[in-house]
Design a protein around this nucleic acid. Sequence first.
DNA 1: ATTGCTTTTGCAATTTGTTCGCAGGTATTA
DNA 2: TAATACCTGCGAACAAATTGCAAAAGCAAT
Lengths: 135, 135
Amino acid sequence: MAKQHELREKGLRLTPQRELVLQAVRELGHATPEEVAEKVRSTHPGINLSTVYRNLETLENVGLVLHTHLGHGGATYHAAEELTHLHLVCSVCGSIGDAPIDTAANFVNTLADDYGFKTDVTHFAIYGTCQKCSK
Amino acid sequence: MAKQHELREKGLRLTPQRELVLQAVRELGHATPEEVAEKVRSTHPGINLSTVYRNLETLENVGLVLHTHLGHGGATYHAAEELTHLHLVCSVCGSIGDAPIDTAANFVNTLADDYGFKTDVTHFAIYGTCQKCSK
DNA sequence: ATTGCTTTTGCAATTTGTTCGCAGGTATTA
DNA sequence: TAATACCTGCGAACAAATTGCAAAAGCAAT
């Protein structure tokens, strides 16, 4: 059996737009739909914003990308395999820092043990003030 | 010296709309701007949605109310004195549970010690699956 | 009370972010 | 290569939040 493309393995059609959206998400790290569209358009100007939205949704449904809320407004998208860190969003300068997911391990365990709540710790931002801004 | 109204103490003018917005936030616990407007309109139909938005912003600037992000879309507002708990938002049923703020104390300390990041733990929701939905 | 200055409000229009309907185009399977 | 889903582009529709402006109202000093 021939090697399947990752999109086809998930039961999706292999369209240029879809591959470009996935590639853009992977290259950008964190990105809003708007940013993804802009990235894709830098090489393929014709792509429509709705197509980006639809593909992000589709790719999320099959588990290749995920979204996170970093505060106001829109979600930001990540490649699923890269979402291995917390987001430390600074309320002053808006910077987005990273911390290993293990930093929250005890917190997550406590919520599970005490409240039966299974925390998806990557889905929300950690809000606060970064080192630079708290001086 | 006569007792000042709490709004005047903050240097704000005392308008009926402003008092009503603050009162609504206090009575509702968590509320979106839309919900605040609805509450206020139940007794004072004329109030405009922009007025609610502007007053929420003003009241937040002087520290009487705060907002929290519970996921998609809009912020939800709280009276400043009531924001003493974490919000456990269930991704399945949408319910909003509470947990004492101390639950996150170790987590917050770790972020401060290791990253110099001062976490505002009430500003973001804790996303996951509640006990009921994870069965 | 009245005056005058400043803030606040209501309203309508605008901006921004996201979704939808539909007609034409394209990937896939047989 | 023909049939048939599925996908895309496009514009319209939507929703949420913001803004400009003129009228109204709060406040301090007369």
